[in-house]
């Protein structure tokens, strides 16, 4: 079945407005809007370090149309606020049974990208494909929850979806938080809060789970446990997973793809399995080593203070975006 796609194209006037196009015309319009000629900051030395296979998740010139086999697909997303391109031409696909991890330095636009994908914010340009068959379970950053509201876990889970007590108990059991049911949200530990938020997302019976920094404020063992849970949800329920990691270098080992962004896509690829790595296992213990992986990546460009990409200079020994001293 063909789903209508919403295409967001720049208009000729000074205002940016949204134009809804029939699906047939989308591709042609896209080639205009995503062509790299209108990239505001030129970067002559910027090369592109990975091979351009299908669904590589990189935001460069080979992007064509949205992937209609994906649960969610974006092409050439731009989001500009206060004259800063927070999101500059990003492509992103998430398929069923696929775990995609987003990493990047603070202020790289990870949360903004998630908000664009969820429809909380509207992109200024670019195309977003999110068929009505895609049901999203969203797990927000936990510290955003308003603490002035008294709220038991049971009431929180019932709110909105009208879930029955049995469904709530089952969802909490699935995420391993059954005993929190009568507790106040504000009294839960970081790991418990995350599990309750995941249970709430599961009550919507989603086929795509979007988690924004689920492991933030959770220790390494707790992080590994959470990633185990997310991995088993993917395996048992066949969910697609889009996950924002708070850590630049440690990601979920089961990630099918890791995408490092800093406004644009810096690089992407598979996480290196480090479970076998003796040093890593010694540091974090065998349990953690099974669920976490070190994502080693070397960038072929760096960023000046305005965030514009520039070639790596000889003097910089850092491979982390935004920390170079140009």
């Amino acid at each position: 079945m063909r789903q209508p796609a919403q295409s967001l194209t720049p208009s000729s006037s000074a205002f940016r407005r949204y134009v809804i196009l029939p699906a047939e015309t989308v591709t042609a319009t896209l080639e205009q809007s995503v062509s790299h000629a209108d990239r505001p900051v030129g970067s002559p030395g910027q090369s592109h370090a990975h091979d351009h296979g299908a669904a590589c998740g990189c935001g460069q010139a080979h992007s064509t149309a949205v992937d209609r086999t994906a649960l969610m697909s974006a092409r050439g997303l731009w989001f500009t606020r206060h004259r800063r391109d927070l999101i500059a031409g990003i492509d992103l696909d998430v398929h069923a049974r696929e775990i995609v991890t987003l990493i990047g330095p603070n202020g790289a636009g990870k949360t903004t990208l998630v908000k664009l994908m969820l429809g909380i914010e509207k992109p200024d340009r670019g195309e977003l494909y999110r068929p009505t068959s895609t049901l999203i379970g969203y797990v927000p950053q936990r510290f955003d929850i308003e603490r002035a509201i008294p709220m038991t876990v049971a009431r929180f889970l019932a709110l909105g979806h009208g879930a029955s007590d049995d469904e709530i108990a089952a969802a909490l059991a699935e995420v391993g938080a059954a005993r929190t049911v009568d507790q106040q949200l504000s009294q839960l530990s970081g790991g418990e809060t995350q599990r309750v938020l995941i249970a709430r997302a599961l009550l919507r019976r989603p086929n795509l789970l979007v988690l924004d920094e689920p492991a933030r404020g959770v220790d390494y063992v707790g992080e590994a446990d959470l990633y185990d849970l997310i991995g088993s949800l993917r395996d048992n329920r066949g969910l697609g997973v889009l996950l924002v990691s708070h850590d630049l270098h440690v990601v979920m080992a089961k990630s099918d793809r890791v995408i490092c962004i800093n406004g644009h896509v810096c690089c992407s690829g598979k996480p290196e399995a480090v479970a076998k790595h003796a040093e890593y296992a010694r540091l974090f213990g065998p349990r953690a080593a099974g669920a976490l992986a070190v994502y080693t990546h070397h960038h072929d460009h760096q960023h000046d203070l305005s965030g514009a990409p520039s070639p790596v200079t000889q003097t910089s020994g850092l491979d982390v975006d935004g920390r170079s001293s140009t």
Binding site: I120, P140, I149
Partner: peptide, 9 residues
């Protein structure tokens, strides 16, 4: 409780 969560839902 959480504006983004409500919006996403």
């Amino acid at each position: 409780l959480h504006e983004d969560l409500a919006t996403a839902e």
